[in-house]
Amino acid sequence: MQLEAKDIGFRYGDGPWLFQGVNLTLEPGEIVGITGPSGRGKTTLCRILAGFEAPIEGAVHFNGAPLPNNGYHPVQMVLQHPEKAINPRWKMHKILNEGYQPDKELLDLLGIEREWLTRWPHELSGGELQRFCVARALGPNTRYLIADEMTTMLDANTQAQIWHAVIEIAKKREMGIIVVTHESNLMRRLCHRVIDFNK
């Protein structure tokens, strides 16, 4: 169930190469950090690994084969701004159950209160919304989670709550995680190894 990026390169249109020859192998259960200044293509790399974008050069392999084009994607991504990742015209329960039905245990672990399910997105705070985005991404067939500045907009307590829940699930399911953050303390706390995207 390895996730492997082989010599991938990417550029937008005819622009300059954002990066080339990037190699990355992620084992099940491994937590890897990616760091580097803004604008170097960290988010683009994440989008390629999660299948939102196809690399111009190289390939991404999951379990020895190319990433699947249909069905549930084994690599799921959580973004920095939850308000931009959900449908503002859906109530929270519809957002939560779009991909699958999360069980009670997961909701409790992430601290999602039942009362929130009948609310509209604009009635919840960023920290509350982000819990839904995490729950939504943690379907039973998710093998790798990409957390792109997942808790950057949240206060310290909510950040710790969400990460504790995610790490516990990752351990139980042997799920791999990629952590993109500028916060070196968080990186040190969470990751087994860190890749510097500065080169």
Partner: peptide, 19 residues
């Protein structure tokens, strides 16, 4: 105190619940 303790460089231990 809870906010301070929840920082990753301190205990990284959150208190349950939300505002």
């Amino acid at each position: 105190k809870a906010l301070w303790r929840a920082l990753p460089q301190n205990e990284f231990r959150p208190i349950p619940g939300s505002q």
